[in-house]
Amino acid sequence: MTTLGVVFLPQNPPETLPAVARAAGAAGLEELWLWEDCFLGGGVSSVAAALASSTHVRVGLGVMPVPLRNVALVAMEIATLCRMFGDRVMPGVGHGVQDWMAQVGARPASPMTLLREYVTALQALLRGDMVTTEGRYVRLDGVRLDWPPDPAPPLWLGATGPKTLRLSGELAHGTILSGGTSPELTARARELTGGHPLAVFVPAATGPGAEQRLAALTLDHPGVHGDAAQIADAVMPWIEAGATSVILQPTPDEPDLPGFIRFVAEQVRPKIPRA
């Protein structure tokens, strides 16, 4: 089944998020996604605010950079969110931007080794297991959550390169593809991950100046623009390529984000087949 969502960009002031989440809930939006970009809003606190300000909307965090956060702490945060908000929580982790990781003294020599160790330990912790491991990066000595989620949530993994895509297909529930990913690359990602769920961020704009606002972005794929019918038609290549969640990414200068959410949920969604 294809779902449709919207990104709340971290370039937006954090204090505007509760109103945006309320608008998403009122409009019946299926998914609201958040990013944790350095050095903007905190991902976990933002997800908690969005969940608390809405009902029914699933909220995704794509992604928490694994070099930046201890795996036990991330397990605690995810477990707490899931116990409070259930299956509306969609947690995602990933490499993070390596230049940013270097800025904070957390860049690993082997990102792939770290990610494998991290995801393996994180999923075990979320299952409620007692975890002892002595990896190159992840080291835990008899760690078990007192309040594990029940059930453990599906874990998403942010990925772009072929090695990470294969790792995501091996270990994760689904893969998050960054904004600017073309339908062709989406199809390749589906092949490399083995056909599991794919969420892809697609830049989108509507209203006056929509095409010009998209053109100002430096992305490999120009995104989609126009009225509801035009945008619905334009996202079909991603769906046909295997995307199970198409998350429309407004431009940073979107003048009316609540209005954009209502447009997506109320006008675009009915024009896109669910199956």
Rank of each mutant, 00 (worst) to 15 (best):
A79C: 07
T251M: 06
E266G: 12
M130G: 14
E36Y: 04
H225S: 13
L157C: 12
I272E: 00
R107A: 15
G94D: 13
V44Q: 02
T133Y: 08
C82E: 11
H95Q: 12
S110E: 05
V235G: 08
L4H: 12
R88C: 08
S54F: 00
A21R: 00
E266T: 14
F260N: 15
F85W: 14
T120Q: 15
A216T: 09
A24L: 04
P222E: 06
L68F: 11
L61E: 06
E117P: 12
L115H: 01
V66H: 01
S110Q: 06
I272K: 00
S110K: 10
L51T: 10
L125Y: 07
I231C: 09
M64H: 03
D141S: 11
G128I: 06
E170C: 09
P270H: 09
R262H: 09
V47K: 01
V200N: 04
F263L: 03
D256E: 14
T3P: 07
E36H: 06
W35E: 14
A241M: 08
M64W: 01
G86M: 13
A21G: 05
A216I: 09
A75V: 06
F260R: 11
A189Q: 07
G5L: 03
G161R: 05
Q103E: 14
G96N: 07
F39Y: 15
E191H: 13
G62L: 15
L51P: 05
I231E: 02
V63C: 11
L61M: 13
P148N: 04
W238Y: 14
R144E: 02
V235T: 14
A216L: 14
A72H: 03
L248G: 05
G96T: 09
S45P: 09
L125G: 13
P13G: 00
P148G: 10
E30R: 13
A24S: 07
L257R: 13
A124D: 12
P67T: 05
D146T: 15
Q103M: 08
A48R: 03
I231K: 10
D220E: 15
Q249E: 14
S54N: 06
G161V: 15
L34V: 13
V6A: 11
E30V: 09
L32D: 08
T80Y: 01
T120A: 08
P18E: 00
Y137R: 01
H196S: 06
D129Y: 07
V71R: 00
D87V: 03
V47H: 01
H221L: 10
P237S: 08
A24P: 10
G195Y: 01
Q249A: 13
R83P: 01
R139T: 11
M64G: 02
P270N: 04
T133L: 12
T132V: 07
R88G: 09
G207Q: 12
Q267N: 08
A234V: 02
D256S: 10
G28P: 05
A109H: 08
A243W: 04
I247F: 02
A275L: 14
G207Y: 01
G223D: 04
T175F: 02
P273W: 00
V6W: 00
I176K: 12
D150Q: 11
